[in-house]
Design a protein around this nucleic acid. Structure first.
Lengths: 158, 158
DNA sequence: CAGCGTTGCTAACTATTGCAAGCACATTGC
DNA sequence: GCAATGTGCTTGCAATAGTTAGCAACGCTG
């Protein structure tokens, strides 16, 4: 049933592989393309095209797909090129942008954060992963986090 | 030159008024619709339609407009319904999602962050705002923050 | 085996985005 | 006054997103 795919639109086959990512998440969830399409409220042929990189879905469609897959829409946005991660990382940026903190507090938080990060790098220890509040298996979540970081680096190089 | 606008698509006239926001930002920047369109790399009739809520621009167009206005694309995404703010806030979410921190470190950071926020709330002091790295006047930035929160609530009710 | 259901995909179609050509009006300088 | 230029908008159209109808292949069951 699996057909050989021709090389179509190499751009969509780059590191930032939205379609491949959606397909992988769907496989992990062990649901068919039609089931996902139904849950997401999109047509199954269209989802097929998206997965194969033949179409570029809107943010609205990405949101629907993300919801159906129980993953963050941001993960899809980043791969679709709608969102970029920031060079300082999400935590640094969020702290700097918080209008309810003064400069001193921001600096303290950043220092603590940086020392924690340095602590982990020095020990080489794999941090204990906490279960995410979402109803997702841990394996899927950690893959998501890792993939986001990889996508960030490849985009910075562009 | 200002013509009376008919009530068009009341949905686009809601709290989440993307077009009105773009027009306001443009007015603040004191540039004409054509100048902004040129800077953004979009057609001026289309920008006109976007401002009047007649069209729903893609994320790509929003990004171009944001860049031309020297504002964050996220600000436009939120108003376009592409992004939502999170209930825990960006800092809490970023910390929880950081795969390079272990549970203990996350908890410590969250405790510090929470105590800082409580500290400010108890004293009622207006935290000293650090100048945003962007070239935006403070008045505009605070207005943006307020509007984001309002937009979130209206979307939750849907 | 035949029948049925599921699967992912093709092709034609509809809906919408975004653009080009052009309009009416306002402003500026001679 | 006039011509030149600037302004925001209208209209028609091309391109693309997204859907519908249907196909071929596969797996399961009696």
């Amino acid at each position: 049933m699996e057909r050989m795919e021709r090389p179509v639109k190499a751009v969509n086959r780059a590191v930032n592989d939205l379609g491949g990512y959606i397909r992988a998440q769907r496989a992990t969830a062990q649901i068919s393309l039609r089931q996902l399409a139904k849950r997401a409220g999109v047509s199954n042929p269209y989802l097929s095209q998206v997965e194969r990189g033949l179409r570029k879905p809107s943010a609205e469609i990405l949101q629907q797909i993300a919801n159906a897959l129980r993953i963050s829409a941001e993960a899809l946005y980043v791969r679709a090129g709608i969102l970029e991660s920031r060079p300082g990382g999400p935590v640094v940026d969020a702290i700097l942008a918080d209008t309810e903190l003064n400069d001193r507090q921001k600096q303290v938080l950043l220092d603590v954060y940086t020392s924690f990060r340095g602590e982990n790098a020095a020990s080489g220890a794999v941090p204990v992963r906490d279960p995410e509040p979402r109803d997702e298996p841990e394996s899927r979540e950690s893959r998501d986090g890792t993939a986001v970081h990889e996508a960030v680096r490849s985009e910075s190089e562009e």
